[in-house]
Simulated assay, not measured.
Amino acid sequence: MRVNEDTVLRGQRVLLVPYEPHHVPRYHAWMKSEELQKLTASEPLTLSQEYDMQRSWREDSDKCTFIILDAIQWDQGYPEEQCMVGDVNLFMVDPENPALAEIEIMIADPKFRGKGYGEESVRLMLYYGATTLGISTYQAKIGQENTTSVRLFSRLHFEEVSLSTVFQELTLHWKVTTAERLWLLDATPVTVETYSKMKRSGTELRD
């Protein structure tokens, strides 16, 4: 999605940055993991196909994706690719209802799991969708056995609306009511920055 191509969302632990071609090699290496393929219901891609996917996520108006960076490592001067933790995505799943979006989160690097990176990344994406993209209803589809993700979204006020026994998948929804919007804004410290300036300052830091 072009709208977020120069947007950075900074939280306390993470930075969300637009998915760029230089992120693809590490992302591709992650997705060779059978565990991640299973958790994300993904098929392995070639590196060329991964670059095509990155371009699709950038160009398509029904997709919004951010790469998750470890803010501490970034602030310490590590190269951007070494700071990568995972990704978080929104998919506009109903052309007749642009205010509905499906959200996905992946913490690809195991050493960052269980430390709050996933929850903060989801909060930031919920904030961005609600304040910038006009999203009023979110849904998350999670495999029944992925209890960690189910607990994460439950903490963020998502509620189960259906269970597919065929796909062994739960669907959860969260509606951005006035009360829930105020809760989200209060619970999500965020600074919005520009990616072009962040990259320039990062280059200066490393020179």
Results as ranks from 00 to 15, higher is better:
residue 93 V to D: 15
residue 100 L to D: 04
residue 163 L to K: 11
residue 122 V to I: 12
residue 137 T to H: 00
residue 104 E to G: 15
residue 160 E to Q: 11
residue 147 T to H: 11
residue 159 E to Q: 15
residue 96 E to K: 11
residue 106 M to C: 14
residue 141 K to V: 06
residue 146 N to D: 03
residue 160 E to L: 07
residue 100 L to K: 10
residue 133 L to G: 06
residue 128 Y to L: 05
residue 150 V to K: 04
residue 98 P to S: 07
residue 100 L to E: 02
residue 124 L to E: 04
residue 108 A to P: 09
residue 118 G to L: 01
residue 146 N to W: 00
residue 121 S to C: 05
residue 88 V to E: 04
residue 162 S to D: 14
residue 120 E to Y: 05
residue 104 E to F: 04
residue 122 V to D: 05
residue 125 M to V: 09
residue 134 G to V: 11
residue 90 L to D: 06
residue 154 S to A: 14
residue 131 T to A: 15
residue 86 G to A: 07
residue 110 P to I: 10
residue 111 K to N: 13
residue 92 M to V: 13
residue 89 N to A: 14
residue 154 S to G: 12
residue 96 E to N: 11
residue 161 V to I: 13
residue 86 G to D: 02
residue 144 Q to L: 14
residue 99 A to E: 13
residue 103 I to P: 00
residue 148 T to Q: 13
residue 159 E to V: 12
residue 99 A to K: 12
residue 121 S to V: 04
residue 94 D to F: 10
residue 133 L to E: 08
residue 92 M to C: 08
residue 121 S to W: 03
residue 104 E to C: 06
residue 130 A to G: 10
residue 98 P to Y: 04
residue 150 V to R: 10
residue 121 S to R: 02
residue 142 I to W: 00
residue 143 G to D: 10
residue 115 K to S: 05
residue 122 V to M: 12
residue 135 I to T: 12
residue 159 E to Y: 07
residue 91 F to P: 03
residue 155 R to S: 08
residue 123 R to Y: 02
residue 115 K to Y: 10
residue 142 I to R: 02
residue 106 M to G: 00
residue 108 A to V: 09
residue 114 G to C: 13
residue 140 A to N: 02
residue 94 D to M: 10
residue 127 Y to W: 15
residue 107 I to Y: 00
residue 148 T to G: 12
residue 139 Q to W: 04
residue 116 G to V: 06
residue 147 T to R: 11
residue 156 L to A: 08
residue 151 R to F: 12
residue 127 Y to D: 06
residue 162 S to P: 04
residue 102 E to W: 05
residue 90 L to E: 02
residue 110 P to E: 08
residue 132 T to W: 06
residue 113 R to D: 02
residue 156 L to T: 08
residue 105 I to V: 15
residue 130 A to L: 10
residue 156 L to D: 05
residue 132 T to C: 06
residue 152 L to E: 08
residue 91 F to S: 09
residue 156 L to I: 13
residue 103 I to C: 05
residue 127 Y to T: 13
residue 127 Y to R: 11
residue 159 E to F: 09
residue 104 E to Y: 11
